[in-house]
Amino acid sequence: MRKLIMWNVITQEGFFEGTKNWDLSFHGLVWGKELEEFSLVQLRSADMLVFGSTTYKGMADYWTNAKEEEGEVAKFMNTIPKVVCSSTLVTADWNNTAIVKDAVSEIYKLKKDGNGNMFVFGSGKLSESLMKAELFDEYRLCLAPVFLGNGRLLFHEGLPYQKLKLLETNPLTTGGIILRYAPIGKE
């Protein structure tokens, strides 16, 4: 069975983007050789990426036009199977992408169909739906050393109570900290 893993970079107050879609300037505060290597390790363990429609559009635009220095990460991003969860998208042109209309039921089925990791990158609304359905097996967060002041929160009121077990902490020389948690009972 596949593991469903959330991956997000968040600020100290829990924002995963600024006030506008794709306002991710604070990601530059934690990006460096260590986070690049961590990203590659994650991608090598994955057999599928999962996105909400807004994140999918932004990622597709970025990675299909990636510069040469993006190297191995770009290769993974452009070749790995992808799922975009959207009730409105009709076509998905990024390589190896399927569209699913009912995220919760389809992701549940996809988890049963493989052995690798499925990663949800960004995708705040989708992540909230998957959290409410208790489908995540692990949460991986990179805590950036910044108070943004305002933006879009990753975690909102109304999520189910869920105790977490700390699996790993990994401090970065950039000042960020990668945190890995599993819901109790799924570690």
Rank of each mutant, 00 (worst) to 15 (best):
M131Q: 11
E72I: 07
E106Y: 02
N96K: 04
Q42A: 15
A133K: 07
F147Y: 04
G151I: 05
E17T: 06
T55S: 15
T11Q: 10
I80W: 02
I80N: 06
V9P: 00
A182Y: 00
L167S: 07
F136A: 09
N117S: 04
A103H: 09
L89F: 06
L89S: 05
A92E: 01
F155R: 03
L141Y: 09
G151D: 14
A182D: 02
E70T: 01
K67H: 07
V50D: 04
E68H: 08
L166F: 06
K20T: 10
K101H: 12
L166V: 05
I10E: 15
L24H: 02
G28L: 07
E157A: 13
S129F: 00
N170L: 11
A46I: 07
A144V: 07
Q42I: 02
E106G: 00
G149L: 12
E72S: 10
K125W: 07
N150P: 00
K163I: 06
T79Q: 11
A60R: 05
A103D: 06
N170V: 09
L141P: 01
K112Y: 00
T173M: 12
H156D: 07
G28D: 12
F147E: 05
P171G: 14
P160Y: 10
F51P: 01
L130R: 03
W63I: 11
L141W: 09
F121S: 09
F26V: 10
N95E: 07
A103N: 02
Y62W: 09
N8R: 04
S129T: 02
G149T: 03
R152N: 13
F15Y: 14
R44I: 05
A182H: 05
K75C: 08
V9R: 01
K57G: 06
H156L: 00
F16A: 06
R140S: 03
E68F: 11
T91S: 13
F15Q: 15
F136T: 03
W7H: 14
L154K: 06
I99H: 01
G18D: 05
K3R: 12
K20H: 10
E106S: 15
K33Q: 14
Q162D: 02
N117E: 08
Y62M: 11
P160D: 13
L43F: 05
G185D: 04
E138H: 07
F147D: 01
I177C: 11
I80G: 13
E72L: 14
V84E: 04
G151L: 08
H27Q: 09
Y56D: 11
F38E: 14
S127G: 02
V50I: 14
Y161E: 14
L89K: 04
R2E: 11
V41Y: 08
K3A: 13
K125H: 12
V9L: 13
E138D: 08
D102H: 05
S105G: 01
S129W: 03
L167C: 13
W94D: 03
F155Q: 04
V41F: 06
R140V: 00
F16C: 05
A133M: 15
A60K: 03
L135Q: 07
Y139P: 01
Q42E: 15
S45V: 12
D47S: 09
S25M: 11
